[in-house]
């Protein structure tokens, strides 16, 4: 095992431990993360798998193949996160809007009411 394989395996182990801590209440998330980490570990320990896959797809090196897939994956993740942020923003806007409309006042009347309150 080379040094980089040790570092990457250790990194995957840490991510796995963190994921277990965070997702242990959600079986689907935990299993998904587990599968990802298992796949990652397999590719780290047996790099020839990616190399032969890369050659089959017309890419020179296995590392390059992983790099290309990572780019696609991160673009997908960014879009997913952006869509979620927009959804959250719309929900927040709706809550604030409903509250503010419920609290709408006619300023001139509010002023009169405040004056009456003070005089009592």
């Amino acid at each position: 095992m080379t040094a980089i394989q040790v570092i990457l395996s250790f990194g995957l182990l840490l991510i796995g431990a963190y994921a277990y801590k965070k997702f242990r209440n959600s079986i689907v998330d935990a299993v998904t993360m587990g599968l990802f980490i298992l796949a990652g570990a397999t590719l780290v320990i047996f790099p020839d798998i990616t190399s032969s896959l890369a050659r089959a797809l017309g890419v020179g090196r296995g590392v390059d193949l992983i790099f290309y897939f990572c780019i696609l994956f991160f673009i997908f993740i960014i879009l997913k996160l952006y869509a979620r942020i927009r959804r959250l923003e719309q929900m927040m806007t709706k809550v604030i809007r409903n509250n503010s409309i419920a609290g709408a006042v006619k300023v001139s009347e509010k002023h009169v009411v405040e004056k009456e309150d003070k005089s009592q």
Binding site: T93, I96, R97, N99, S100, I101, G103, A104, V105, K106, V107, S108, K110, H111
Partner: peptide
């Protein structure tokens, strides 16, 4: 103060589009 206008206030700054939609609703 004293003007015969409706006043609606967003708790936080959401943006002009959001404010317009609130007024419309």
């Amino acid at each position: 103060v004293g003007l015969p206008v409706f006043y609606i206030r967003h708790e936080i700054n959401l943006g002009q589009g959001a404010a317009l939609q609130t007024g419309i609703e």
